[in-house]
Amino acid sequence: MKNSWKIILLLSLVIIMALFAGGLSNNPRDIPSPLVNKPASNFTAPVLNSQETISLADHKGKWVLVNFWGSWCVSCVAEHPYLMQLAKIAEKRDDFMIIGVDFRDTIEGANTFLKRHGNPGYKHAFDPKQKIAIDWGVYGAPESYLVDPTGMIKLKHTGPLYFGWFEKVALPQIQGKTNGSN
């Protein structure tokens, strides 16, 4: 009887420690998105610095990286050099493109940002009331979603994209799909 209580006490301690260790190793900012492997919500929005509009549905058949950013976001500055490089990769490929979504921002703010840090050249949907961002379950910036040619969200990346991200994360997805269809 005495031993059974000791075992129960030890077991409870182990469970509490395991939960604690799990909690410590978790990143509280990394909240899993329920949108992965679900159809991406379409949006049609005005293009930043243009009279035209952009719609996600118009780009079915291509892998689309939807990158949410804002001129107010400090991490977006850190991410920007990689986006400049990724834009060049996208230019060379006919199966991959990037759409930026500039949310909760002003046109002046966005232009100052692009002037200061460089314009990657792809189109940005302008979303000042963050309707698209909320529709896509965005918490903060930057956040990126990789949408496959059928319009399904294949992955979500929270935080700045890093050098080598395309080769390490996106390319295996794209090639997997290419192999699958061949």
Binding site: I31, S33, P34, I134, D135, W136, G137
Partner: peptide, 8 residues
């Protein structure tokens, strides 16, 4: 909201 942000 649940569909977009989960039960969080």
């Amino acid at each position: 909201f649940f569909q977009r942000y989960g039960d969080y």
